[in-house]
Design a protein around this nucleic acid. Structure first.
Lengths: 218, 218
DNA sequence: TATATTTGTGACTGCTTAGTCATATTATGC
DNA sequence: GCATAATATGACTAAGCAGTCACAAATATA
């Protein structure tokens, strides 16, 4: 966690530093990201970073947690209960995700790139934890839907929960493979991941829902 | 591609070198893998590697291609046509994959770890190419099944193909998340990825098929 | 204003890496 | 056996990195 020194830093400077590191970690993997580069660009001393954070991983984790919290303010603003069925809620999650992306492009890019950090031993645990959290969340929803008699009950909840999680990541992955989005370029241009791609995103979401609905519904 | 020097090397020495690098790349990501470490373990000079290969990427690509060819001898030994339906073929692919793993543990581990190399800019293109190849393969099968009137035709082939591809990777990923397999440990112990996990694997495959069948079948 | 505390600094350490190249060793052809 | 070609070698280069620390500057306290 960051030191008091960092937290006392003053809005302006703190944001400037945070954003520089967000950008670095959004462009590079954890291991490739260079603190030396960032401080050079920021025009501050290397040692300062180590007055603000324990080490590279501490800084990285801080960014993960703050970004996560920001995103949670969006996707956590609604509950599954308020929707006619699970799929309406599932769909809404992507709309909120789009909104988060549009209003917090840097944080969105950072979280996007996070998915590519599975490998680094240093952040592997952190990533696994985040994934498990998400998978468990979907698992709970699946259990709820089964309870309500809306989802089939002849398969392990874990399988269905994991599948839902994977559907979410597949959607963004497919858009990338099919060159609809290009995070590498859009971060350079300082624009959101899904800039101008709202329709394409939601169309893809709808396609995926249409596809997998029969797999889950009773 | 490797030099003649490498190809002329003699079965024994060539295999020893190949296997040492396969192991290194099976344990570490491309960037983390250290040629210096491997040559030290092998007891050969660093310079020798550069008589065999252009550079690190050349060596890596050679390993990808040879492993791919070995695996293709398994999964390519059957055609979708010979099966009563697509899902029987899909299931068979995993049986053949298991067999490949059991008989070529090192190559299997290497290919397994490949999935974790999406990030490295150096191998990104190579990985994308392999993925696209696989996705296109599934796309073709989807198109065929639609032609035969067995798959639904109200969704883009690309979406359905990509989903099938993702189902395949999700199966192995879920087994890993649920600690059924542990590549990191099994490579250390010199045993196949799915050692003693045939039943669990096929059960998971069956579960996934059972789950997603209604999503694809007409 | 003088002293104490907090914050900022950047040269430096120690480490690792891919890749090179002049030299030594081994194999081949005559 | 000798000369030529092919192969093996490992110290070396240049570059990168995270993290440190003695010192300087700024700020707070008295």
């Amino acid at each position: 966690m960051p030191s008091n020194t960092f937290l006392k830093l003053g809005e302006e400077k703190r944001k400037r530093i945070e954003e520089a590191f967000l950008r670095e970690f959004a462009v590079n993997s954890y291991d490739e990201a260079s603190l030396s580069d960032v401080v050079k660009k920021l025009g501050i001393a290397k040692g300062s970073i180590y007055q603000y954070f324990e080490d590279k991983l501490d800084l990285f984790m801080y960014l993960v947690h703050t970004c996560n919290q920001v995103k949670l303010r969006y996707v956590g603003s609604v509950a599954a209960k308020g929707f006619p069925d699970f799929w309406a809620y599932f769909r809404k999650l992507f709309e909120l995700g789009y909104q988060f992306d549009a209003e917090n492009p840097l944080q969105s890019h950072f979280l996007h790139n996070l998915v590519r950090n599975v490998n680094s031993p240093s952040v592997r645990d952190l990533y696994d934890e985040l994934m498990l959290q998400s998978v468990r969340g979907f698992g709970k929803m699946v259990a709820m839907e089964i309870e309500l008699g809306r989802f089939r009950d002849d398969l392990p909840v874990s399988t269905m929960g994991f599948m839902l999680f994977r559907i979410g990541t597949s959607i963004q992955e497919q858009l990338e493979v099919e060159k609809e989005i290009n995070p590498g370029k859009s971060i350079e241009d300082n624009v959101p991941v899904y800039q101008g791609k709202r329709e394409v995103l939601m169309q893809t979401v709808d396609n995926y829902i249409k596809l997998v609905r029969p797999a889950f519904d009773k």
